[in-house]
Simulated assay, not measured.
Amino acid sequence: MLSIGEFSKICEVSTKTLRYYDEIGLIHPDEINPENGYRYYSIKQLTKILFINRLKSYHFSLEEIKDILEWEQDHFEEKLSTALNLKKRKLQEKLRTYEYTLKQLNSDVLNLEKGISMMSYLNKIEVQLVETKPMNILYTRQMLSSDDYTFGYGKYFSKLYETIATEKLTLLGTPITIYHSEEYNPAGNDTEFALPIEEIVNGTRELREGLCAKSVYKGPYSELTSVYAKLTEWIENEGYEMVNSPYEKYITDPTQTTHPEDLVTEVYFPVKKRS
C-alpha cells in the first residue's frame, strides 16, 4: 500500500487534488485508517490515476473522465476509441484555428509597422444588393450553444443528408444556416439547418424570395462576425432595414479543405428600404 503522499509523488498529482478526486467519485483511496483518517492507495491504482492523467492531457473534462471510468467493460475499448477520435478531431480543429490566428496576428503586426490600420480589412468586405429566388428547404431547428456550433453543424447537416439519401430526394444546393434569435446568447441560440431540395415533403418549408444585402467571405467561420458588422453598417448607411432572419450559405465543404482561409461563405441579410 502507498500513503497518499507516496501516491501523490509517484503520479505527480497533489494530495489536495487526490482528495478532490475522491470527493467527486473519480478515484477513491483503497483504504482509510479509521483511527487517524490516513488514506492509502494500492499499487494497482497507479494504472488508474495514470489513465486519468492521460485523458486530462487530451483535454477531457473530469466529468467526461468519470463517465468513461463508469462504462461497462463490454465494448469498452471500442467506445474509448470513438471518444478519442472525436477528441482528436476537436483538437485538430482548435489547432487549425490557432494556426490561422497566428497568421492573422503576424499580418496585423506587419500592417501596423507599415502604418496600415489593423481594422483596414473591413474595407475589403464588399456588399451587394440582390434579389433571391424562393427555395424549398429540408430543415431542422435547434437551440444551440456557442460551444456546440462547430461540431453541431456537422451533426445536424449529416442527419439532413441521411434523410435525402433514405427518401431519395433531389439536392439542389449547398447547406444553409438561418439564425432566428434576436440576440446572441452563449447558453443557446435558435438555429435552423437546411438543405435546398426539389421535392415538397414532410419536414420542408419555403425560404421566401426577397431583397437581400449579400456578402461573400473567404476565410474561417470565426471571422464571419466582421461580415455581419459590415452588412449592418451598409444597411444603416444605405437606408435599409432588416425584415427577416439572416442566413449563411456554405459554398465550400469544410470537410474538403484543411485550410480555414479557403472556406467560402455567402451571408444574406433580408432587407427592405426604410420608409
Rank of each mutant, 00 (worst) to 15 (best):
E12H: 15
E12N: 15
E12G: 00
V13R: 08
S14D: 09
S14P: 07
S14G: 12
T15K: 15
T15A: 04
T15H: 03
K16C: 01
K16H: 10
L18F: 00
L18C: 03
R19I: 02
Y20M: 13
Y20R: 07
Y21K: 04
Y21Q: 05
D22I: 03
D22R: 04
E23G: 03
E23A: 10
I24Y: 11
I24P: 05
I24L: 11
G25F: 05
G25W: 08
G25P: 01
G25Y: 06
I27Y: 01
I27W: 00
P29E: 10
P29G: 09
P29M: 14
D30C: 09
D30P: 02
E31D: 13
N33L: 02
N33K: 11
P34Y: 03
P34R: 09
N36Q: 08
G37R: 14
G37M: 11
G37K: 14
G37Q: 14
Y38D: 13
Y38T: 08
Y40A: 08
Y40P: 01
Y41G: 03
Y41V: 08
I43V: 14
I43E: 14
I43Y: 14
K44A: 14
K44H: 11
K44D: 15
K44C: 02
Q45T: 11
Q45H: 06
Q45I: 07
Q45D: 09
L46S: 03
K48Y: 04
I49D: 08
F51C: 02
F51A: 10
I52N: 08
I52T: 05
I52Q: 04
N53Q: 11
N53A: 11
R54W: 06
R54P: 00
L55S: 00
L55Q: 00
L55C: 04
K56R: 15
S57M: 10
H59N: 14
H59F: 12
F60H: 02
F60M: 00
S61A: 10
L62K: 10
L62N: 08
L62C: 10
E63S: 13
E64N: 07
I65N: 06
K66P: 01
K66T: 12
D67G: 09
D67S: 10
I68M: 05
L69Y: 03
E70Q: 14
E70F: 04
W71F: 13
W71M: 13
E72A: 09
E72N: 14
E72V: 02
E72T: 12
Q73G: 10
Q73A: 09
Q73F: 05
Q73E: 13
D74Y: 06
D74N: 08
H75Q: 14
H75I: 02
H75T: 05
F76W: 07
E77D: 12
E77S: 09
E78D: 06
S81R: 12
T82I: 11
T82M: 11
A83M: 04
A83I: 02
L84F: 12
L84N: 07
L84C: 04
N85V: 01
L86M: 06
